[in-house]
Nucleic acid binder design. Sequence first.
DNA 1: TAGTGGTCTAGACCACCCT
DNA 2: GGGTGGTCTAGACCACTAA
Lengths: 241, 241
Amino acid sequence: MVKYKEVANEIRKRIKNGSYPLEERMPDQTSLAKEFHTSRVTIKKALDLLTVAGLVYTIQGSGTYIKQNALQLAESSIRIGQNVGLTAQVDERMHLENKTIKFDVRFPTEEECEQLLLKKEDPVYEIERLRILNKQPYSLEHSILPLSLVPGVTKDVLQKSMYDYIRNELGIVFGENRQTIRAAQPDELDKEFLQCGENEPVLEVTKVMFTSSGTPLEFSKVRHRFDMVEMSFVNLNTEIY
Amino acid sequence: MVKYKEVANEIRKRIKNGSYPLEERMPDQTSLAKEFHTSRVTIKKALDLLTVAGLVYTIQGSGTYIKQNALQLAESSIRIGQNVGLTAQVDERMHLENKTIKFDVRFPTEEECEQLLLKKEDPVYEIERLRILNKQPYSLEHSILPLSLVPGVTKDVLQKSMYDYIRNELGIVFGENRQTIRAAQPDELDKEFLQCGENEPVLEVTKVMFTSSGTPLEFSKVRHRFDMVEMSFVNLNTEIY
DNA sequence: TAGTGGTCTAGACCACCCT
DNA sequence: GGGTGGTCTAGACCACTAA
């Protein structure tokens, strides 16, 4: 473990247990550098981490302060990003299932070529899967992946986790993804597989997943039952440049 | 302008105009430090900015590489975060309106106390506004703000921009916000004001906005017409600690 | 083993807040 | 004007990749 992360963790613990009171000024960076037997630059790096994590904020010329809502975030590991959650409480007694409706290989459509930076002749997998919780279907997922990047997909892979396969078997590291969210009226597939009534909408999430090197890996449209899935995320107010 | 941002901008220009080819290795940090007459630490800071912006990625021991999808992001100013967009193209000929349906002061509900960290006796504004594009209503926004933090709100303020008022008149700096997104069936208000039919759903966004010091500032629920609004965002795959 | 990025230091100067 | 955070340097050592 590198030093600035260790310092950040220690300070986080102190915020959590109240050594540094909420909404008050922390010791200045020079004092912290002395206390942790390190340089001020390292302290600054640690505080930058905590700033991004939403625990503290700094005012140049004034000091470093604990955020009022810091305690809610002071738990151990922090991950920035969105979170797709089931509205229903999921525990051990519940049964999550995964049913493959379609598994095909074909040439991509124009939209798919554009999103995945493919040529018309580059074959893709087309996969349609249904997610089921306690015999109640809640999401219908339509995925397109280029064969060139993700070879060797089988029904067995789909039954387990495709992302695990891509990560562990193919050794591909995921990067960012871009999503668009809409509400939509149910179409024929939704009515059939998600058992949507005429007035029961779906939450449609369109996503392009990239590898760490920026190559588009997957283009997917997921349609969620409106009464079983919601998405939540923290939006940091970070501007760059 | 500080040096590391200048360096980052210059490198971004080079990526954009093709001086550094996509998917190839960039010059190493020591060379860049020499070229820009600066230290390696400063180069590293510049590359960190570009990494967060999604333009490059580094592999320790190997080098710094341009992402394949970098060009889409190489435009001038970059902002991380979500984006609520109107599906319809908006240009000068279009007319955006803002109609206040309700403007009240009252004591908060239990949920509002919890979300805004208030006591039962702390009065709040309750505001309901309708957003209209070309005489077509597209969003219905319900906001709760504590009087103690945001005093002096008037109908005139609501008619213009409440966020401008908070930022410019009150001098409050915004921080992060937390959002939850759902699809929902239209309720009576949606039918009346958004002119939703029985099977026209809404996209419901619940948001808590915080100040830079972490104090909850606003608790809002916005309901958008499904055929006029969508939300999109980039999800960086960043883990901290 | 050579080359590259990641971290760290001690000291310096500047920008900004506050009184 | 004193105190604080933001930036920057030159040099060092370590961790990792790739041949």
